[in-house]
Nucleic acid binder design. Sequence first.
DNA 1: GTCTATATCGAGATAGAC
DNA 2: GTCTATCTCGATATAGAC
Lengths: 200, 200
Amino acid sequence: MSAKRAEMLMNVAFDLFAQRNFASVTIKDIANAAGVNTALIYYYFSNKEGLFRATLESAIDQIFKDFETLEANATNPPIVIDEWLTIHLDYFERVQKFVKICLDYKGAAETDPVIDASIESFYDKERQLLADAVRDGIAAGLFREVDPNELADHISTHLDGIMVRAVILPGYDLKAGIGGFRNVIWQLLGHTPEERDATQ
Amino acid sequence: MSAKRAEMLMNVAFDLFAQRNFASVTIKDIANAAGVNTALIYYYFSNKEGLFRATLESAIDQIFKDFETLEANATNPPIVIDEWLTIHLDYFERVQKFVKICLDYKGAAETDPVIDASIESFYDKERQLLADAVRDGIAAGLFREVDPNELADHISTHLDGIMVRAVILPGYDLKAGIGGFRNVIWQLLGHTPEERDATQ
DNA sequence: GTCTATATCGAGATAGAC
DNA sequence: GTCTATCTCGATATAGAC
C-alpha cells in the first residue's frame, strides 16, 4: 500500500526535521533512517521541499486529532484547561517538534500559503478551545470574570515559551515548568484545585 | 582597523543567520551583503562555523550591555520589571533574532560548550535580574509574597513565547502581547500601575 | 588586507535496470 | 515499487597574485 509507505517516510522525516533543521537534514539521512534508497523518496515526493510540506501538514493533522480526543473527554471547564496542559506533557515531543519545525519553516526563503494557513488554523483552534473553556467556567461561576480571549492567548503563548525553553536550555524541567504554570492559571482565574476536585 | 572589519562582518552575518538559518545562509550571501569578497571572510574567521560562533557570542555581549544600561537606570522594583518588558519592545528585533539563532544553533549537529555556557549565562542573568526585582518589591511591601524565582521564570519563559509568536504568526501584535502580559504580572504581584506611578 | 581563480566535495535529483 | 549508477550544480574552502 503506497499511502502507508509515504506516511512512514513522513514520520521519519518529521523526527529528523525536528531534531535538526530543514537544510541540514539530507535526503540520504532520511533514506538511511527509513532503511530505503534515496531514489525512493523521489518516487513518493516531488522533491525535498515537497516532502517537507507534506510532513508538516501531516503533523498538523495528527495534532488536530489529539485536540478532538481531548474535546470529547472534557466534561467541565477546569478539566479542559488542566488536560490541555497535560497533553503538552504527554505529547510534549510532538508539540515541541511542531513548534521547532514551524520556526524553521518561517525562516526559510519561501513560504507556502497553504502551510501558512494550516499553522494559523492550528493556533486559532487552540485559542478557541481555551477561550471557550474560560468562558464556560465564568458562566458556571467557577472562574473570576477575566477576558477569555486574553487569557487564552496568555496560556497558548506561554506554552510555546515552555516548548522553546525545553529546546534551548538542556536541564530544563518541563514537568515543573508546566506545574508552576498551572498554579499561575488557577490564580489568574481565582480558582483553587480543591474546588476543581469537588466539582469533578 | 581589523577589529572593526570583523565586527561589521559579524553584524551582517547576525542579521542573515536570524532571517534564515545557519545552513541556508551561504558565505557568498554574507560576503555580498557586506560588499566584500568571500575569501575575505576566511581571512577574519577560520570557517563558517567559526564565524557563527563569533557572531553569536558578540550578540550575547551586546544584549548583556543592554542589561547593564537597564540596571543602572532602574530605581525601584516595579520600574525594573516594567522596563524589562519595554526593552523587549525596543530591542525586539535583537532579542527575537537571538532566540531564533539559539534555537537554530541547538538544532545543529554539534554544539560548542563555550556557546552553550554563554546562552545559559544569558538566561541566568535575566532570571536573576527579575528575581531580585521581585524580592526587593516584596521586601518594600509593594508586591504580594510570591516565590521570586518562580515568577522570574514565568516572566522570562513567557517573553520567549512572545518572541516565538511574533516569528510564527505574521499578524501578531507584539505591543498588545506585551501590554497584556504586563497586566498579568501586576495581577500576580497584587500591584496596580497606579501605585507604581505614585511611588515613582 | 583584499582580490581572482580554482580545487574539492557533497547534496539534490534523474535515468534506467530489475 | 525499489534499487544502482550517475549527472549536475552550488557551496565551502584554499592558493596565490596584487
